[in-house]
Structure formats: C-alpha cells, structure tokens
Simulated assay, not measured.
Amino acid sequence: MAGVSGCLKYSMFIFNFLFWLCGTLILGIAIWIRVSKDGNEVFSAGNSDVNPFIATNILIAVGAIIMILGFLGCCGAVKESRCMLLLFFIGLLLILLLQVAAGILGATSKSETKRILNETLYENVKVLMETGDSGKKFREAMTTFQKKFECCGLVNGAADWGSNFDSIYESCACVNSSRNCISYKSKYVYKETCISLIKESVEKHIFIVIGIAFGLAVIEILGLVFSMVLYCQIGNK
C-alpha cells in the first residue's frame, strides 16, 4: 500500500458506503412520493398526456444509479482499482451535470408546470360527473382525498359531482355546521374545494425532491474530489 494513503483509502470506502445508503434512501423516498395516495390518482387520471411525476421518476432512476456507483466506488477503493475509480468519477460527474441541467430547466419552466397542472385539474372536473367504469378510479381517489383533507369537489365545490353527489356525499359531509361548511342540496358539505389542497400536496413533494437534490449535489462534489485524489495516488504508487 506504499504511496497510497490508508486513511484516504478507507475514508473513500466509508464515503461510498454512505453514498450507497444515500442512494437507497433517495430511491425509497422517491418511490414513496410516486405511489403516495395524496392525490396520485387525481394527478394522473385525466385526459392530459403530461406526467406530473416526471421529476420523481427521474429521481427514482438517479437513486438506482447512485446505488450502483456507490458499490463501484467501494470496490474501487478497497481493490485500489483505477478503472473502477475512473468509472465512478465519470458516472458521478454525469449525474451532477444532469442535476444542474434539470434544476435550470425546472426553474425556467416553473410557470409552465403550474399551467399544465391547472389544465389537468380543470379537465378532471368532467370526470367527476361521469358514471360507469369511465373515470371510476379517479372518482374513488377523489372521495378518499376529500375525506382525508376535508374538502369537496375540485373547482366549484359539491356541484362538480353532478348526479354523483348523493353516492359520494359521505366523503364531503361536514360533522358540524361550522364556518368551514356550506349547505348543498340540504346537506352540509365542506366549503373548501380540493384544487388548492392538491396544488399544496404537489408543491410539498417538489420541495422534498429539491431538498434531496441539493443535499445530493454536495455529497457528489465530495465524492468527485475523494475519487480523483485516490486515483492520482494509486497512479503514483
């Protein structure tokens, strides 16, 4: 091991093991966001071809790749393999560049994303009035969302449900006639519509994704420095 710092070597191994764990955590959180029932069906059940979870899908891919890179970095450090360390460095650099590009793209298209989300939600209002199997999953998701977040309808309140209101009334029902309730067809329902709460849920998920991405960028830069220093030391051995 002459010429190669043992401290650096095992620091690199520990770092990459933590990096692998970080990838596992990212993958787990991203999957949780993707399958979360807090409006998941609401976002995807309309006629829009736009996938509002595209950022989360990318994060799932990133988490899986990070797990592979972490394993590669661990092996490269322990075996003192310049080839593995170089592959680790290149892979990590590409991910960092992609994250920067995605961040810039996300910042510049923020207003467009909000517009698409609005259009998707407004299109989905029509589905609430439909009957039969058409849009059934969407309506079931909406009733669950209404009951959980104490809201009713998407845009116009209980009227959005049309003739389906009587069958879903329980999910909109207010226990007390408080200031948060209004009367509709002689029944008390939640006054607040769900559209604002759905947008808040989307923003909450986006903030989680952004926070993970920023934390990950710092770790990635450290990984680039560690791997290159060790790569050079092995070359000078």
Rank of each mutant, 00 (worst) to 15 (best):
S111A: 12
A55G: 06
G223V: 14
S177A: 13
R82P: 10
L96D: 08
C7S: 07
V209K: 04
V127Y: 00
G211L: 05
T144Y: 15
N176Q: 11
M67F: 13
L25S: 04
C172W: 06
S167C: 10
C74Y: 12
F165E: 03
F145D: 02
I234S: 05
A213D: 10
L93S: 09
G135E: 01
K185H: 06
A213I: 15
F89S: 14
M129V: 05
T193H: 07
I90R: 08
M12F: 08
F145M: 09
G235S: 11
F165M: 10
S36F: 12
I168H: 08
T193K: 02
Y122P: 01
L87F: 09
S36T: 12
N16I: 02
I206C: 08
L25M: 02
T24Y: 11
I66S: 04
F207M: 14
I14M: 03
K110W: 06
M12W: 05
G235F: 00
R139D: 02
I221P: 03
K191T: 08
A107G: 12
R179C: 06
V100H: 12
G162T: 01
I206M: 07
A159L: 01
L85T: 07
F214S: 11
M67L: 04
N236M: 12
S201E: 09
W32V: 10
E170Y: 09
I29E: 04
Y188F: 03
A77Y: 00
E119P: 01
L92V: 11
G46N: 02
K9N: 02
D133I: 01
G76T: 13
E203N: 11
I234L: 13
C152S: 15
F214L: 08
C181V: 15
K185W: 10
G70R: 00
I29R: 11
L93Q: 06
F43N: 15
V50Q: 13
I210F: 09
A141L: 07
E41H: 14
F13Y: 06
M228L: 06
I65K: 03
K191G: 15
G70Y: 00
M1N: 09
S183V: 03
G103D: 14
S11D: 02
G39A: 03
E80P: 12
R139K: 15
F17L: 00
S11F: 14
I182E: 05
T24R: 05
R139P: 11
S5E: 00
V175I: 07
G211W: 00
Q146L: 11
E123I: 10
G28P: 07
F53D: 14
I26V: 15
S171N: 13
N124H: 14
E220P: 07
Q146G: 09
I90H: 12
V4N: 04
T24P: 02
T113R: 15
D160H: 06
A158T: 08
I104M: 10
Q233Y: 02
Y188L: 14
A159Y: 03
L97W: 11
K126D: 00
M12Q: 12
L92N: 10
A45R: 04
S196M: 15
I31H: 15
V100Q: 06
L59N: 02
F15C: 00
S196L: 08
V125K: 00
E130M: 14
S171G: 09
G91A: 05
A64E: 13
C151G: 13
K136S: 12
L154H: 01
R82C: 04
E123M: 05
I208P: 12
Y10M: 06
S109Y: 08
K37R: 06
L18D: 06
P52F: 07
F13Q: 03
S11G: 07
S36G: 08
G76E: 05
I212L: 05
